[in-house]
Design a protein around this nucleic acid. Sequence first.
RNA 1: UGUCUGAUGGUGUAAUUGGCAACACGUCUGAUUCUGAAUCAGAAGAGUCUAGGUUCGAGACCUAGUCGGACAACCA
Length: 570
Amino acid sequence: MKTENTEPEVKRSLNFIESIVEEDLKNNKNNNVILTRFPPEPNGYLHIGHAKSICLNFGLAQRYNGKTNLRFDDTNPEKEEVEYVDSIMEDVRWLGFNWKGEAHYASDYFQQLYDWAVKIIKDGFAYVDDQSAEIISQQKGTPTQPGIESPHRNRSVEENLDLFTRMKNGEFKEGERVLRAKINMSSPNMHMRDPIMYRILKRNHHRTGNNWCIYPMYDYAHGQSDYIEGITHSICTLEFEVHRPLYEWFLDHVYTEGTIKPRQIEFARLNLSYTIMSKRKLLELVQNKIVNGWDDPRMPTISGMRRRGYTAAAIRQFADTIGVAKRDNVIDVALLEFNVREDLNKIAPRVMAVIDPLKIVITNYPENKEEIVTIENNPEDPSMGNREMPFSQAIFIEKDDFMEDAPKKFFRLTVGSEVRLKSAYIIKCEKVIKDSTGNITELHCTYDPDSRSGSGTEASQRKVKGTLHWVSAKHAIEAEVRLYDRLFNDEAPDGHKDKDYKDFINTDSLKVIKNCKLEPSLKNAAPESKYQFQRIGYFCVDKKDSKPGALVFNRTVPLKDSWTKIQNKE
RNA sequence: UGUCUGAUGGUGUAAUUGGCAACACGUCUGAUUCUGAAUCAGAAGAGUCUAGGUUCGAGACCUAGUCGGACAACCA
């Protein structure tokens, strides 16, 4: 991945994390090593919120000449699966980042974690509790009331060691014993009230199999994993702010002088309007078949956005634009879409595609004549060259591009008016053909033979107010087009106390349109290739369902549309 | 009646020894256009949660409030 420091850098203000890093560098902290980490739990697919975190962690390291570890936080065998591990690695790579060395796993450190737990017991700072989850929870107190101490809190070190060993050896059932840190049951911080370090779980772990029947809890495992790896800056989201004293407590109990001591820094997670970001709820959408899997193009997952046609560059740019801070935020999804269009505008070849076809017969054009017109692939980038497209007597245009009783501001085709067919001729609508029920079935037009684009004639230079996309009827290929819209109708589907987010699902979030008419050059369009359907939007070939001869296109994002805006005003 | 934390245009993010609030998206004009896209030019929109204080000068510092968020899983 290219870094941003090659170009004469525009002075950019630092975010608060960069300030911390620069301060550390100035003070020669950690011998100027910068090592961050991205620590997903493999219990779901990554989403745009994770993308922010990935860009932050990897971006920070790149900027300051450091590296980033990928570490799977796989301490809960109940929920974690290899499928998720694979998808996470794919998504991080696709975003354009490379982690340092091999991927790491918290489960790689189970032995070390165990040994340290034994040390902490020996030092008198951990004990085995025999009570049930319910009792322990009751004794925990509330945020405003102190907890009470477990009757087993003051067991001897020998007894604790014995019990912990037997926990490890599988002598107890799940839930019968836990290892707890001995801190302070009346701490105003709930997390310091003798938190659980280990629980018994007789489950098969996706990596360690049945080697262990005790598993460390997040608070104990995470910080120690950071420490083992020599992470300098451990960046996480705000909800872990209250965990920081515990993070530091554990660290202090295993720390060796002279080694790197990781520092936890918290930032505000991303919220996107019209979107939910909770992994649990996304899983629910998948399981209830409200969407077609984790990579459904309507999902805010990285794989969903990829399948929809978003580019990694657009997502990186988005992450950069939204910045990093500590206050809660809701980003307008329009900003994400702006970044997607901005990138696609530069790289996507233009093509002609008619989604809702209306046939036009050009009555003064010879019936069997065919011409080839030349069209630029991308006016934003001449180096993308030109292509050729057939023109003939019968063509399709978009139904929306014709109106019988048109308002004055309608620049498209109406009876008696002229319009330019992009890169071809100027035509004039003479007659509307309707069926018995009054539906328009066809238009009869005439063309101006001297108006051909690029011919240089006076007629070709004439200004007409509208330019339409079109496709030759007999040459057109057919395809299925999937029009995706936002999944939720509400700005904050998750933000209503009395209503469930599912109440806001947009039932029109997917419209499947068959038999769309596409220009013939699209015949061999490769899976995942991206196009701008001229005047409509950006589309990409679906990587799963599209087949040669039965193409399927996903709408990535529509073009900005000031016409509907004008219409809505009137 | 706790701990931690935050508060700047509609939305985000800036303002680096305190020096007249900037950028992006969005919105609105207009120009241009063989994409009603893009592009270009411009405009509106906050006086920085409140009240005091320090200072020649405060979004930044101090004090006291107000409002918001997180935390009571053998989840992460």
